[in-house]
Design a protein around this nucleic acid. Structure first.
Lengths: 334, 334
DNA sequence: ATTATTAGAGCAACCGCTTGCGCAAATAGT
DNA sequence: ACTATTTGCGCAAGCGGTTGCTCTAATAAT
């Protein structure tokens, strides 16, 4: 296990007959330095394959070059592809900026992991994905002076958020369905209202009806993603109203709905039309392909990182940034 | 933004009239120290709410207290719940050991992210989840003297791996089906053979037949998870053989299979039986519930971290650790 | 030609913690 | 009672970068 020491600042300084400071400045481009030496240094760095020791850099700059990402560990939530896709965007954008993403798994109302990371000063800032409404995390982070960005909505209008425009998306989708279906035949099925995202969706749904001068009649709020019993009951109640179209809040619900419909002998789109949020691999490979609002989770993650990075660099950032959905009309609603 | 400096070693040393070194030793318990002062220090730390600066600790100890986790970023793979669940186990176990998990998203055959993290010395070790067979990563890591553990299989019998025993699991499942179904009616549907895990599954499948003194006849290896066209074609070919049971390599395939069967008007388990690997929320909430091999991804992740940690501490660790599946017989095969 | 200014580079302190070494006091050995 | 050990603690040198300040040489200004 003879590990030949990594080359360090000193080495390349020696090789060029310069001092550490000069080399350091050549790299960062911060102080005053001649373009000539600068290039010589950069050249030498390449040749000697020098990579700075980020830990040392961190210590002296008081920056970690890490950002924390809190993701829920509750099993049902965890399995939603959203978080993982989002994580990819975060990871990618971090890499671009020479940062890294450390994950912070949190269980409902348990801030201990987050606290640990904050106390240990392991990150420069934090990204919260899909917060539950109580805002406990935000409060804690603020108290500890830790900058953060939320992916989703926040009750506090002062926090920086990035979100898909669920309200507009759901409104657009609903309006589209209202064009060729009677208002009383359109149903909505959502996950728990504990997640702010579902509130947004609901308000878009209602807005579309308001615009059309009518009111929703068939509607279902399905509040517990984990309980199969509750889902079945809710489904039965919903189907009794004989909706002609159903909008699903997410693709997990949609898959279960589709299975249920198939059990009932109803075929899509002939007997009933179905549309959903988010475009996981399920929805476009399903037969028939499902109309959906395309949800670029990767982009959301990447944008959140950008916002956070800008904050850390002291720039003014746009609060409450909203990304547009793309509505993809497919066979399930034709 | 007036951030009152965090209390540091010096402060608590001053408060007690001791030196930094003594306090440091009191914390780590490494040097020689009287139990009396030790307790006083610990007490004072609590009172002054001291948390060591991990960066400084890292620099002097030459340890990062971070472990890297490479996860695939290819969209289809990414959406598999496996990785995320696994990540939860990793995160949890890291926390227990006061470490953190940094994520390394990699796209097929692109080692650049991994290289960046390694070069930057951001981690003490790395966990690779579900490697593709070529072993490029492993080679790179070895060359850079970076310790690692693989979740899955490796071609190199010298690397430390943790995996569910897919061979045994698939054998058990197949044997169970062979008890009440004719051998020629059992089909298998797998993802790409590029993933070693599918090889293991296949060999377990074959082993069960061998034990029963017969050979598999209906069999399908579905090699491209992303191509819907290929999936359809493969399905058609499979169904032509009129299997009475189908084993799916993972729950994603299973969901698609179920959708397809439903389209064909076949009902489970009356017309055809279905069993699968991994127990995502899909499989047990589906109607009927699907027989499956329960795959504790969280435990896999946690175990990988333990193994890696032990390696880093210089202990001997068990190579090729295998975790048992639990077979859960449900209605889909009754 | 002489002075004022600036550009280029080096010295050394610092970031906050660990640790090898040294020294005095306490304990053990004979 | 006197030396040999051991115990408890402090000093100061790292770890590998960054950065404020200083100094000299080069350029600009008068």
């Amino acid at each position: 296990m003879e590990k030949n020491k990594k080359t360090q600042l000193e080495d390349i300084a020696a090789a060029l007959g310069l001092s550490k400071s000069t080399v350091s400045r050549a790299i960062s481009g911060k102080g005053r330095i001649s373009t000539d030496t600068r290039e010589r240094v950069l050249q030498c760095i390449k040749e000697m394959n020098y990579r700075p020791n980020m830990i040392a850099k961190s210590l002296s700059e008081n920056k970690t070059y890490n950002i924390g990402t809190v993701i829920p560990m509750d099993s049902a939530e965890t399995e939603a592809p959203f978080f993982q896709t989002c994580l990819m965007g975060i990871s990618k954008e971090c890499a671009v900026r020479d940062h890294d993403a450390v994950i912070i798994g949190t269980e409902k109302n348990d801030l201990s992991q987050l606290k640990r990371v904050v106390d240990n000063r392991k990150v420069d800032g934090i990204i919260i994905t899909r917060p539950v409404a109580d805002g406990g995390m935000e409060k804690m982070l603020r108290e500890n002076g830790m900058p953060f960005v939320v992916i989703g909505q926040s009750v506090d209008k002062d926090v920086v958020t990035v979100d898909s425009d669920h309200t507009a998306g759901c409104r657009e989708l609903t309006s589209y369905l209202l064009m060729s279906n009677p208002p009383e035949s359109i149903g909505l099925i959502l996950g728990s209202m504990e997640h702010t995202v579902n509130k947004s969706r609901l308000s878009g749904f209602e807005a579309a009806f308001a615009e059309a001068g009518s009111k929703p009649s068939v509607q279902l709020v399905y509040t517990d993603v984990e309980s199969e019993l509750q889902f079945s009951k809710a489904m039965t109640a919903l189907m009794k109203q004989q909706p002609a179209c159903i909008i699903c809040g997410d693709d997990m619900l949609c898959m279960r709905l589709l299975a249920e419909l198939s059990n009932l002998g109803l075929s899509v789109p002939d007997d009933i039309k179905v549309a959903s949020f988010y475009d996981s691999v399920f929805l476009d490979s399903y037969l028939p392909p499902i109309t959906s609002l395309i949800y670029n989770a990767t982009e959301l993650g990447a944008t959140a990182v950008s916002q956070l990075m800008d904050m850390l660099e002291g720039e003014e950032v746009e609060k409450q940034k909203l990304m547009h959905f793309e509505m993809l009309v497919r066979r399930s609603t034709m």
